[in-house]
C-alpha cells in the first residue's frame, strides 16, 4: 500500500506546487487522477514514484518511508512517464528487456515476458525496431508494455492515453 500523508512538494526554492496532499493507493484498486493543465498531476506522480522528495509530510510504502526512486523500484512501484522514458538507441524489445533484467528477472524469462507483452500490445512486429523508428503511438504502447511487464505492486501511468 502506497500512502501519502500531508505531503507538500515543489521544485528547488520555488513555492510548493502541491501542499498538504494525502493519498492512499490500495492494492487491486485503480486510482484516476484528473485536473487541469499545470494542476500538478505529474508532480504528484513523481512524488509517489520517489522522484521528488516531499518538503513536508511523508510518502510510505507498506508503512515504510519512501526514500528515492531506487527505493521505489525495490518496492515495485512502476512508473510510465509522460515522455515514455524510452531509450531511443534501444529497440522496443531491448527497452523492456533492460528494465526486466534490472528488476531481477532472469534474461531468458525477461526475453519471454518481453515477447509476450509486446505481442499483447500489438507490437510483436516492432520488437526489433529502434524506438526512434517507431511512431509516437507505438512508442507510447512500448512504454505501457514495459510498465505492465514489470508487474509492479503499484503502476503509476502519467498521461498514457494522451
Amino acid at each position: 500500500m502506497l500512502n501519502m500523508d500531508g505531503v507538500s512538494v515543489g521544485y528547488g526554492d520555488a513555492p510548493a506546487v502541491l501542499t498538504d496532499i494525502s493519498v492512499t493507493v490500495r492494492p487491486g484498486r485503480v486510482l484516476a487522477l484528473t485536473g487541469s493543465s499545470g494542476a500538478g498531476k505529474t508532480t504528484l506522480l513523481n512524488a509517489m514514484a520517489g522522484l521528488l522528495r516531499p518538503r513536508d509530510g511523508s510518502v510510505t510504502v507498506d508503512g515504510r518511508p519512501l526514500r528515492d526512486r531506487d527505493h521505489a523500484v525495490e518496492h515495485r512501484i512502476v512508473l510510465i512517464p509522460q515522455d515514455n522514458g524510452l531509450a531511443p538507441i534501444l529497440t522496443a524489445a531491448e527497452n523492456l528487456q533492460v528494465a526486466l533484467v534490472a528488476g531481477g528477472v532472469t534474461p531468458p524469462e525477461a526475453l519471454r515476458q518481453t515477447a509476450a507483452m509486446l505481442d499483447l500490445l500489438g507490437l510483436a512486429g516492432q520488437a526489433d525496431q529502434l524506438v526512434e523508428e517507431l511512431s509516437g503511438g507505438q512508442q507510447q504502447r512500448t512504454a505501457v508494455a514495459r510498465g505492465l511487464a514489470l508487474r509492479g505492486g503499484v503502476l503509476l501511468a502519467d498521461e498514457v492515453t494522451s
Partner: peptide, 12 residues
C-alpha cells in the same frame, strides 16, 4: 537524458 530515463526504470 537517456540514461536518467533508464535509471528511473530501475537500471542499476
Amino acid at each position: 537524458a537517456m540514461l536518467v530515463a533508464l535509471r528511473r526504470q530501475g537500471l542499476p
